[in-house]
Every structure is written in C-alpha cells, then in structure tokens.
Nucleic acid binder design. Structure first.
Length: 566
DNA sequence: GCCGTTTTCGGCCCGACTGTTTTCAGTCG
C-alpha cells in the first residue's frame, strides 16, 4: 500500500466530484492527492503517530478515508462513486486535452471507459461526430494516443533531457532575436522527472520573437500558437511551451512559470492578505506595479526570504521564509568534489579522462571507486590491479592541484567477514557500501540487511540505488530507522541524481534531516562523461533542504579527507 | 472538503488558449 495508490484514489475522486459539479470538493481531493504524493514518509508511519491531520489539505473527511484505506485497503466513497463512473480516469487523463468533463462525455456518448476504447473510437471516426467534439478534437486525441503508445510514463527523468535543453536554450540565445531566455517550470525546480519544457524570453516584439527564435532542429510539430504563447512538440520527446514577456514583467513571469502550482497558490494568497495582487505580469497594489522585474523583489515585497526554485513545492518553504528560517542549502558551486566515480578497470587513460572531465566541471577532487566484488571471488588479479591504481593515484596527487581519493565500492549484503584483502587496505581506502534494490525483496528484509551492515561499520558511506523508477521509490523501506542508525554509527548517506541509477528520493532525504545524518554527493558516473551528473546530485540535496554544512563535499580536499577518516 | 493574524462561515488563483455549442466551457499550468 503505497502513498501513490491512495493519491490516485483522491485524484479520481476529484475527477468524479468535478463531473457532479462539486468544484470545491474536487479541489480539496486534488490538493490532498498532491500533498500525499510529495510526502517523504509512508502514510502508515504518519497514521501510527496520529498525525494525518498535519498533512496539508487533509481534514476530517479525508483523514477518515485514509484510515479506511490503510485498515481495509478500500475507500467506501470511492467504491460507491466508481460504480457510477466505471471509467479509467487515470489512464484517460494522460491524453492531452481530456479532463473530467470530456471523459464523461466520451463515456455517456460512446461508452468509452479506457484508452483501448478510445483508440477504437478514434479509428472508426466516432469522436468527430460526438457533440462537443469535432474533427480537430479527434485528430488531437489521435496524436496524443500515438505519443502515449511510445512510452510508459508521460514524464522523463531530468537527467535524460537536462543537458539537451541547455543546448537548445544556448542556441536561442545565440539567435539574437531575443534579449533574454530562461528555462522555468519543473526543470528550473530540478524536479526528478519532467513533464514539459517551459521557456521564457524577453522581447519587445513578442509576435516576431515567437516565430523566429524556436530552433527548428528541436521542434517536430506545433500544438498551439497564440500572440503570447506557442506550444510545440520537441524532438526530445516532450512538449515545449514558449512565452514572451517584457523586461518589466520578467521576474514575475519567472516566478509564476517556475511554480510549483501549489507554491504559487500560496504566494497569491499571501499577496491578497497584504492587499496586493500577484500574477505573471507583476505584483500590484490597485493597478500600480510594486514588483515584477526580478523574483527577489517579489519575495521581498511579500515579506519573504528569497526561496530557491528547488524548494518551491509548498512543503513549508513559505512559512519558513516568513520567519527567515530557510536552511542554508548549498549553491552548485559550493560542491568541490565528486565522491562517487565508478572505475571498473584501471588504466592510466581512464584515470586521465576522469581528471580532465572533473576539472572541466569545476571540481577540485573526485573519489574513484574500484568495483569491490573481486573480494568475494578471492582472485588475485583484480587486487593487484587495485594496488597498481593506488600507486598511480599517489604519484598523480603529488604533482597536481586536482586530487583523487581512491576507494572501493562493495555490495553491503556481502559482509566484512567475506572480505579477503588485508585489513589495512580496507581501512585506508574510502569504502562505500552499496545496495541495489530491484523491488523483489521484501521491505522488511531490505531494512534489516541495511541496518545490520550499518552496525558492522565496515564502510564509510551508504549508497542505495533503485532499479525501479517509481517516483517515490515506494519500497516500504524504513528510511527513518536507517538514517538514524547511520547518524548513530557515523555512516554517511549518499545522494545521487544519476538518471540511470535512481538514488534516494529527495523526500526521504528531507525527512531524514532531523536524524542529524551527514550526506555525501556522488555522480555515480560509470563513464567519465557522466561526472556532470554531480549537479543533479546537488539538486537533490537542495530539494531535500539539506544544509551545506551537512554535506561532506562542500568541504575542500584536505577537510573532506579528514572527515572521511583517510 | 479544507481552512482561519479581520473569518468556525464563506470563501477557495487566475490568465491563456482551443474548439465548438456563435458567446463560452473545458483544459492547462
């Protein structure tokens, strides 16, 4: 029973209430669903502490439904409504342009209950004859269905598109037809998954700008085009929204389109309380602009500390900013080293490439982790190679400002008792204990394995990775207990934003910050070219509200070595 | 259905765009 399961139930309740015209109930369910999705802890845990009502958007009625779900696996009201609307809302809402009302119209008019029915109706051209729909609607539905068929999720991992989007924006800047271009939306917030690409530009002639500055090589189709906005299909597999604003409004436009939606609702509410009005064009008293040119001015005019984009999820950041108590999260330039670069084979060429790439990323040091599974095989060849690597690193470090920290990565389900190398090798190397969670083991077993290994203290840093790309890594593992054990035993926890290898979710990391645990950031680069993912790892720390002082890599090489006890 | 530093009742973000029902509802962010 995961949080996302119950979030889906509330989202569908929202859809059904909307069909029945109960707008506010719908809004309430929608809000509760979003809140539950952004929790870092299982609802069970919150329930067992009797704290369900502390969740934003959960009142007495929704609390009852959550309890009912946790205790019986069902929600009565949902079952009752669903019997009247036997429709796969979750599936059908993936289709662009279909909301609750249109889905209901498709159901009553054509008996469509899911994506399969919809596809059949499109193929037999029944949609265009349906009242409220037309030829264009049918074409749009068909296009969206084709897109859905090519992928399992409507969102892509940030790391899979981040760097291409940067290139695209760079091309726009070079086009010279606009004065300024910025990426906003979930990419600016560095959300783990991205549903679309939002880009803003400054130009005095918006019409012309919208026509001319889109780099053709990235655009595969146009969805909508108005005087202030153009929506397109991008070659990277997502839709892109481009908007043009004047310089006076650019800050408020950035603020508005960076989101999140929930953060903005709270911001507007705050503005109203102060007798102001906030929209994408500025912050106004009556109709006189108070702020809007830059984001800082808007936050400041509302009596808030500046909130970094990564924290804008309405999970307490506005309240903290009012009290000027936002944590000191690290800036991207504060991270001086990458503490997880994978080395499967040692050659001077590979090491040279790692050093060159890391320097290029602005780093001062990197930990190169040799795959330690050779230990269990007890074979000598790899151990000899590892020793060669140590010697080579010593030589390299002596003559360079850039430093390497040699280390070993060991699977943690392989205890220290199986380690057959001399103990001094283990104690002099930076040892990372890793566990890859594939979703087949039970949550209890996993928690137990991890706790046991933490207590045996044979590694310095815990590195968890997940082959399941579930958005909340809802394995049911007891992160709270794991992080507390880490803090108690002086073990660090690794955060990684590598898109090929899901690390600990930011919500789990944030929930753990009260345990006092310290964090290590790593790119988990398997190839030198992936060292750039250290930026995505930093983003996770920022989203998790982790203080710069709790991150080992924000220290320089000498201090970091000291902390790692090397 | 939720929520409260003017409220326990009466509000609840708001503007852009599309397509179709020729004046606006539905969807999106």
């Amino acid at each position: 029973m995961s949080n996302s399961e119950i979030a889906i139930i509330f989202d569908e309740l929202a859809d059904m209430e909307e069909i029945e015209g109960n707008r506010w109930e719908s809004l309430a369910y929608r809000k509760a669903a979003a809140s539950i999705r952004s929790l870092g802890v299982p609802l069970e845990t919150i329930y067992s502490k009797g704290e369900l009502r502390t969740i934003d958007g959960v009142g007495s009625a929704i609390e009852k439904k959550i309890i009912q779900f946790l205790e019986t696996g069902k929600v009565e009201k949902y079952a009752e409504m669903k019997s009247r609307y036997p429709i796969d809302f979750t599936g059908l809402r993936r289709v662009q342009g279909l909301g609750p009302k249109k889905i209901y119209a498709l159901y009553t008019g054509l008996g469509i209950t899911g994506l399969e029915d919809l596809k059949a109706a499109v193929e037999s051209h029944k949609i265009e004859k349906l009242s409220g729909f037309g030829k264009k609607s049918e074409d749009n539905i068909k296009r969206s269905l084709d897109l859905i068929a090519t992928r399992s999720s409507d969102r892509l991992p940030l790391g899979k598109i981040y760097y291409e989007v940067q290139n695209m924006v760079e091309a726009m800047r070079e086009s010279g037809t606009v004065q300024r271009v910025e990426v906003v939306g979930s990419i600016r917030r560095m959300k783990e998954t991205v549903g679309d690409v939002d880009i803003l530009a400054v130009s005095e002639s918006p019409d012309e700008a919208l026509r001319s500055f889109l780099p053709q090589k990235y655009v595969t189709g146009v969805i909508a085009s108005g005087p202030a906005k153009t929506s397109v299909n991008l070659s990277i597999g997502l839709n892109g929204d481009f908007r043009v604003f004047s310089a006076e409004s650019f800050g408020s436009a950035m603020q508005y389109f960076t989101g999140s939606k929930e953060h903005n609702i709270k911001m507007r509410d705050l503005a109203i309380q102060k007798g102001l009005k906030l929209n994408e064009y500025g912050l106004f008293r009556k109709d006189i602009p108070v702020a809007g040119e830059d984001e800082e001015g808007i936050y400041s005019a509302l009596g808030l500390q500046y909130v970094p984009p990564e924290m804008r999820e309405n999970t307490g950041e506005i309240e903290a900013a009012q009290k000027r108590m936002l944590p000191q999260i690290p800036e991207y330039v504060d991270i001086l080293g990458d503490l997880h670069v994978t080395v499967n084979r040692f050659t001077p060429e590979i090491i040279g490439e790692i050093v060159a790439t890391a320097r290029n990323e602005g780093l001062k040091y990197a930990a190169i982790l040799y795959d330690g599974t050779w230990v269990s095989r007890g074979s000598g060849a790899d151990y000899e190679e590892y020793k060669l690597m140590l010697k080579y690193v010593d030589k390299l470090n002596a003559g360079s400002e850039f430093r390497l920290i040699p280390g070993i990565r060991m699977p943690i389900n392989m205890g220290i008792e199986q380690v057959s190398v001399p103990p001094d090798t283990m104690s002099s190397a930076y040892v990372v204990g890793s566990l890859s969670v594939n979703g087949t083991s039970s949550a209890y077993d996993l928690t137990d394995t991890v706790l046991k290994s933490i207590k045996s203290r044979w590694f310095r840093t815990l590195s968890l990775s997940f082959t399941e790309a579930a958005p909340d890594r809802s394995t049911g593992m007891n992160y709270e207990e794991i992080f507390h054990a880490c803090a108690e035993n002086g073990i660090f926890v690794e955060l990684s934003g590598n898109p090929d290898d899901y690390g600990i979710h930011y919500t789990a990391a944030r929930a753990a910050s009260s345990s006092g645990v310290k964090f290590v950031l790593g790119s988990r680069a398997a190839l030198p070219g992936h060292i750039k993912y250290i930026k995505l790892s930093t983003a996770i720390a920022r989203r998790a509200w982790i203080e710069k002082s709790s991150i080992i890599n924000s220290a320089g090489y000498d201090r970091a070595k000291e902390i790692l006890q090397l």
